[in-house]
Amino acid sequence: MNTTVGPEGWATVHSARQKHYDGKFYGQFLGARKNRYTENTEWIVATMYPGRSMDDGFRGGEWNTSQRFDGPRSTDNADDALKRYVEKSYETFVWNRTFEQDTGEAIDRYLAGPEAAGAPKLSAGWHLTDPGHLNQYGGHTIDLPLHEARYKLLQFLRRTKLSAMAHLSKGVTLDRHQAVELATAATGPLRFEYGYHTYWLAAEAPETTH
Results as ranks from 00 to 15, higher is better:
residue 115 E to R: 15
residue 107 I to M: 15
residue 125 G to K: 13
residue 106 A to T: 15
residue 144 L to T: 02
residue 152 K to C: 07
residue 145 P to I: 02
residue 110 Y to L: 14
residue 125 G to E: 05
residue 111 L to H: 08
residue 152 K to N: 04
residue 138 G to P: 14
residue 154 L to I: 13
residue 156 F to Q: 01
residue 118 G to D: 05
residue 139 G to P: 08
residue 169 S to E: 04
residue 164 A to E: 01
residue 137 Y to N: 05
residue 142 I to S: 15
residue 105 E to H: 04
residue 137 Y to P: 07
residue 145 P to T: 02
residue 164 A to M: 07
residue 140 H to Q: 08
residue 121 K to M: 10
residue 117 A to T: 13
residue 108 D to E: 14
residue 156 F to R: 02
residue 120 P to Y: 05
residue 152 K to F: 06
residue 147 H to M: 08
residue 117 A to C: 10
residue 140 H to E: 06
residue 113 G to W: 09
residue 123 S to P: 11
residue 138 G to I: 03
residue 112 A to I: 04
residue 149 A to M: 15
residue 134 L to P: 15
residue 115 E to L: 09
residue 129 T to S: 08
residue 158 R to A: 13
residue 127 H to I: 04
residue 166 A to V: 08
residue 122 L to V: 14
residue 102 D to A: 14
residue 127 H to Q: 06
residue 107 I to S: 10
residue 131 P to D: 03
residue 165 M to T: 04
residue 138 G to N: 03
residue 118 G to L: 11
residue 114 P to R: 15
residue 140 H to N: 12
residue 139 G to E: 00
residue 121 K to H: 12
residue 142 I to C: 10
residue 171 G to M: 15
residue 155 Q to T: 08
residue 160 T to D: 00
residue 155 Q to W: 10
residue 154 L to Y: 05
residue 170 K to E: 11
residue 134 L to Y: 05
residue 133 H to T: 01
residue 115 E to P: 09
residue 116 A to H: 14
residue 158 R to I: 06
residue 161 K to P: 02
residue 121 K to V: 07
residue 151 Y to E: 08
residue 171 G to L: 13
residue 160 T to M: 03
residue 161 K to C: 05
residue 119 A to K: 14
residue 148 E to Q: 06
residue 111 L to M: 08
residue 104 G to K: 11
residue 124 A to H: 07
residue 149 A to W: 14
residue 118 G to F: 14
residue 109 R to F: 04
residue 140 H to W: 09
residue 111 L to K: 08
residue 102 D to R: 10
residue 114 P to V: 07
residue 110 Y to W: 08
residue 143 D to Q: 13
residue 164 A to Q: 06
residue 143 D to S: 11
residue 149 A to C: 15
residue 120 P to Q: 02
residue 152 K to H: 10
residue 132 G to D: 00
residue 102 D to K: 11
residue 137 Y to H: 09
residue 106 A to L: 13
residue 135 N to A: 03
residue 152 K to S: 04
residue 140 H to F: 01
residue 147 H to W: 13
residue 165 M to I: 04
residue 116 A to G: 15
residue 109 R to W: 03
residue 133 H to V: 03
residue 119 A to P: 09
residue 134 L to E: 11
residue 150 R to M: 10
residue 154 L to M: 15
residue 130 D to W: 00
residue 102 D to M: 15
residue 171 G to E: 13
residue 108 D to V: 12
residue 170 K to W: 14
residue 103 T to P: 09
residue 157 L to G: 03
residue 141 T to H: 10
residue 129 T to V: 05
residue 151 Y to M: 12
residue 167 H to Y: 12
